[in-house]
Measured scan of single mutants.
Amino acid sequence: MIVFVRFNSSHGFPVEVDSDTSIFQLKEVVAKRQGVPADQLRVIFAGKELRNDWTVQNCDLDQQSIVHIVQRPWRKGQEMNATGGDDPRNAAGGCEREPQSLTRVDLSSSVLPGDSVGLAVILHTDSRKDSPPAGSPAGRSIYNSFYVYCKGPCQRVQPGKLRVQCSTCRQATLTLTQGPSCWDDVLIPNRMSGECQSPHCPGTSAEFFFKCGAHPTSDKETSVALHLIATNSRNITCITCTDVRSPVLVFQCNSRHVICLDCFHLYCVTRLNDRQFVHDPQLGYSLPCVAGCPNSLIKELHHFRILGEEQYNRYQQYGAEECVLQMGGVLCPRPGCGAGLLPEPDQRKVTCEGGNGLGCGFAFCRECKEAYHEGECSAVFEASGTTTQAYRVDERAAEQARWEAASKETIKKTTKPCPRCHVPVEKNGGCMHMKCPQPQCRLEWCWNCGCEWNRVCMGDHWFDV
């Protein structure tokens, strides 16, 4: 396979590697080409510095992935760790964990309700045991953590790749202090920090972006993250068709209702045909949960890209028209025109101005929308079919299609509260000796007794199943 190397943020060049090629071997190839010592090179990928003893497969490097290699003399205490030698983080029983690669970060837990604080980093599902597709590297999971809308060759929703760059020099040479644990960490600028490894760059702020994971991409090709779309790892039924499908869209209502993408497309087109989208002054033209839940309008309007190009163009047109109407304007009634106009409040005669090729020149009556006339309008008909009709959803289907309910059931079956801080902690095999993952707590306690870890627990039921 081919990976592209950008040395000291210059133009990239291809390097041929195998899945079992080590990072140090990659350094040696680059060092020979650039005429520099291999031990002064640092390989940066997806916000993480890659260790010498890791392989291309370990690092989730795919065909035509772009890695950054910078030349920086080692500072005291760094060289041993980078070589894969006596790194205290690798000691058996050590409590410190390697910062998780962005290629394996899962933010789907952050669609849980606000009262489930902490689960994004504490609760991990076991539903990723799908067998890898044919042709994928051994052991590589097909679980997708992110979804994007690819405006490039795909023109559809695709699995996405999370990447990070330095907000100062805009190069992907920043190593994160810690990985993101929720969508806010990724979507809110300057929320996460790190250290830029580019020479002479003092940058410390992280800037995240997404790429389409279905095809090789260049540095400049980015895609918009659709953070309401998630892999259906909890096997929730769709609120409309009641099938279990994946991926799904999880509405931001209190129940976190789930809808499959085909039904979401149908829901949007139906509402669009009836012009029953909601115009929100802050958000724009949007839709609420299909069950009509309060405070559930979709905030990231790129989710409506699921409509496809033709329907999305209609959505944008109707949204612009609705904006004009909300501002007190009118639409030209001549067939084939429909231009938005903003006449004076007491102006009865409205002319669709033909300047700049935008208007048709038609003069019409503001009251009856017919060709302009003197005197009273002959008839004014009330528009028919403008009443909002509820999208029919079966109550039982709505009850079963809740992301929140599956989460709470998982928590109930696989977790116990920490005796000190009461945060839910998952036990997935292993011994009875637990350690609270909350940095402010870190209590060592017994899963069996529910009390602080002691010699009695150690001698009596340390390794009970």
Rank of each mutant, 00 (worst) to 15 (best):
V258L: 03
C436K: 01
D243K: 12
T177A: 14
A206Q: 00
E444V: 04
I188A: 08
Y391S: 06
L50D: 01
L112V: 14
P189I: 04
E96Q: 12
L307G: 04
K76H: 14
V29F: 14
Q316K: 13
C263D: 00
S10E: 05
N90F: 14
C332N: 03
S407V: 07
S19N: 11
H227Q: 15
K435V: 15
F304V: 01
P216I: 09
A390F: 06
K161I: 15
L297E: 05
H257F: 01
L123V: 11
N295G: 09
W74L: 14
C238A: 00
V425P: 02
C241A: 00
I2C: 14
G354A: 09
L358R: 14
R42C: 13
A214P: 02
M327A: 14
A31Q: 04
V425K: 06
I2F: 09
S65I: 03
L41Q: 04
D464L: 15
A406V: 10
R6I: 03
E395K: 12
A390R: 12
V186F: 00
C431L: 09
G160C: 02
V350N: 03
H279Y: 14
E195R: 12
N295I: 03
C289F: 01
F364Q: 03
G359V: 08
I122N: 15
Q171E: 13
Q63N: 15
K220S: 11
L176M: 09
C457M: 01
C166S: 02
A225Q: 05
P281C: 06
G94D: 12
R442W: 05
C263M: 00
A46N: 14
K413M: 11
V15H: 01
C241M: 01
G459V: 15
E96W: 09
E300W: 04
P294Y: 06
P419E: 03
L61Q: 01
C418M: 00
L249P: 01
V224G: 08
G385N: 09
R72S: 14
A397R: 07
C449I: 01
R396G: 10
V269T: 05
P281N: 09
K27A: 03
D115V: 05
K349N: 08
R128V: 14
D39M: 03
G340L: 04
N52T: 03
K161N: 09
L119R: 15
L187Y: 04
T168W: 05
L226K: 00
Q40H: 08
D346R: 13
A383L: 10
Q438L: 05
P153G: 08
A120P: 15
P199Q: 09
T237D: 05
Y267A: 03
G385H: 07
C337G: 03
W447Y: 10
P189W: 03
V105S: 14
N81H: 14
L261N: 02
G354I: 10
V30W: 04
M80F: 13
G47I: 00
C263A: 00
D464P: 01
F210K: 01
G385L: 09
C421G: 02
E404L: 10
C150I: 01
E98L: 09
A38W: 04
V121N: 15
G284K: 03
T242G: 15
T177G: 12
E395S: 09
E370N: 07
P202Y: 09
S233R: 10
E195F: 10
